[in-house]
């Protein structure tokens, strides 16, 4: 699958993996991963828990060393280089703020380690806090902050030392929905302004699709697909991607063969399925008779669960149309080109 970097940049990749594995005893947390992250790219690593995405992040940060393969950061191999000598910084899942320091000292920690004089580092620290909209909080202790504020301190603390790659480990996981949406926008804005590579680990497909330039979907220690969000969503490479990213309908190979003559599994997005009379619709369409089993109201859309003769089928239709009762027979149809053939997983 072609999946070039979103922004072509001259010079080496910000992060590159070549055949990288990390095994813990018999457990293959990361298994033969190849990866290139472009400088300035917003790159999401998406997958269920235990899929290896966090281990990949820790391999970049230097908290883990690969059992096989090579990792390079801006063309420099970092085999055996410890975390404290890598030009990358991490925003931890639960923030990992130092409880015995106030907000400003937390933010200035990296500068202090680098021997920046107090006056200068506090100036930079205050700037970083202003960047994440926390000016005036300098003297607070981490324990006195809300989850969202801690998140911002962690962000400022990582950014103030000017990393070349910023690693974010499920940074929004502990926030409530409203705050999460707000922070998504702010992270996107920060990324645009700072222009450095962000590597973002998440198990939330919505988050990955809405924020990233490119998404790598992980499963069982391997990357299943790397592509732009639209590509991932519209053309999932395998059944796993189709399932994990936004609950596509997966159609068995023999059914697909009866429709197209090709015996391969295919996916069809719920919003591509229409329940109106197919005769009134243009184009080459595939029509399936089905019985409605459940209708769920989702605000703008209605999720219609149906049973066709080959199995369950889900459609997502505008809620504005006529109400559909459970148990009625419908004719579900979709454009032939909306059916996306997948590789066998």
């Amino acid at each position: 699958m072609k999946a070039g970097p979103a922004r072509e940049a001259p010079g080496p990749a910000a992060v590159s993996f070549r055949g990288v594995s990390r095994h813990f005893g018999d457990v293959r947390a990361v298994d033969g991963v190849d990866l290139d992250i472009a400088p300035g790219e917003f790159f999401a690593m998406l997958g269920p828990s235990g899929s290896g995405k966090t281990t990949c992040l820790r391999l970049i940060a230097g908290f883990e060393q690969p059992t096989a393969g090579t990792i390079a950061i801006f063309g420099q191999a970092v085999d055996g280089v410890p975390a404290y000598r890598r030009p990358v910084n991490t925003v931890f899942q639960d923030y990992a703020l130092f409880p015995h320091m106030n907000v400003l000292d937390n933010v200035c920690y990296g500068l202090r380690i680098r021997g920046v004089p107090r006056r200068q580092r506090e100036l930079q620290g205050r700037e970083a806090l202003a960047l994440v909209k926390l000016a005036g909080m300098e003297a607070r202790r981490p324990g006195q902050l809300s989850g969202g504020q801690r998140q911002r301190v962690a962000l400022a603390r990582a950014l103030v030392v000017q990393p070349r790659v910023l690693l974010l480990d499920e940074p929004l996981g502990a926030l409530d929905l409203k705050l999460r949406e707000e922070m998504q926008g702010e992270l996107k804005g920060l990324h645009r302004r700072l222009g450095l590579a962000f590597v973002f680990v998440t198990h939330d497909q919505g988050e990955a699709l809405s924020m990233a330039d490119r998404v790598a979907v992980f499963n069982e220690g391997r990357i299943v697909q790397v592509a732009a969000p639209e590509e991932i969503y519209e053309r999932p490479r395998t059944r796993f991607v189709a399932d994990f990213v936004g609950g596509s309908n997966v159609i068995a190979a023999d059914v697909v063969k009866s429709w197209t003559g090709t015996a391969r599994e295919a996916s069809i997005r719920p919003e591509k399925i229409v329940l109106a009379d197919p005769a009134t619709l243009p184009g080459d369409r595939i029509t399936v008779p089905a019985t409605v089993t459940e209708v769920l109201y989702h605000g703008a859309m209605r999720r219609v669960e149906m049973r066709a003769d080959f199995g369950p089928l889900v459609a997502s239709i505008p809620a504005a149309g006529a109400a559909i009762g459970e148990g009625i027979a419908v004719r579900a149809s979709f454009a032939r080109e909306a059916l996306h053939l997948m590789e066998s997983a």
Binding site: A61, G62, F63, P82, A83, Y84, R85, V88, N89, T90, F92, Q93, D94, A96, L97, F98, P99, H100, Y109, G110, R112, I113, R114, R157, A158, V161
Partner: peptide, 27 residues
């Protein structure tokens, strides 16, 4: 002392010695 504080300290550039002095010992 949570393990990730020690990782965070290293991540921000502190050598194991500096981490000991600035994070582990105070805590």
């Amino acid at each position: 002392v949570p393990g990730n504080l020690i990782e965070a300290s290293g991540d921000l550039g502190a050598s194991p010695r500096q981490t000991f002095r600035r994070v582990i010992l105070p805590l």
